[in-house]
Amino acid sequence: MAELIARPPCQGLLPLEIGTTTLSETDAGVLTSIMPFKGQEAALSEALIAAHGMAMPAANRTTGRAGIRAIWFGRGQVLLIGPSPHEALAWYAALTDQSDAWAVVRLEGAGAVDVLARLLPIDLRATQFKRGHTARTELMHMMASITRVGDQAFQIMVFRSMATTLVHDLKTAMEGVAARR
């Protein structure tokens, strides 16, 4: 039998390099939304530590490291990025596969903060939004998840169907920043 062929969300759109900033698609692995059942937050955090070596993140924070990360994803919701979730987690939380639901890109370079300042209404100063900090906010007209993953690197996520608009908006902002130099 023939096989189904997988297409990443930003196929044909990325990578881009404009000025001092690059935009590339991230193969994030498995994405799982984790929503703790009533009163199970502490037990879930223990289970997450036991299974994946990281605690549940607080609001606007992440835990873990590159390649295996838990990011706060809204009220009562965390997104596990990287590994398949250990089945023990299902005792404490609703687990939902979201691996195909999000376009995940990485914006990196000296102008990254300036680019995002044109699209996001949040304070991205290094003193306020440190590595490992995350936010659910709007990027231009799209709801997005933004995480600082390096001094000059950000992970940006929007709905998969909006990948074209995401690249359009980021490219426009990147061009505007680059043209000033």
């Binding site: 929503m35 703790p36 919701q77």
Partner: peptide, 13 residues
């Protein structure tokens, strides 16, 4: 009620 909800519109074609 002990219930959790999340959109999976984008997850499935």
């Amino acid at each position: 009620l002990d219930v959790a909800m999340v959109s999976v519109t984008e997850q499935w074609a």
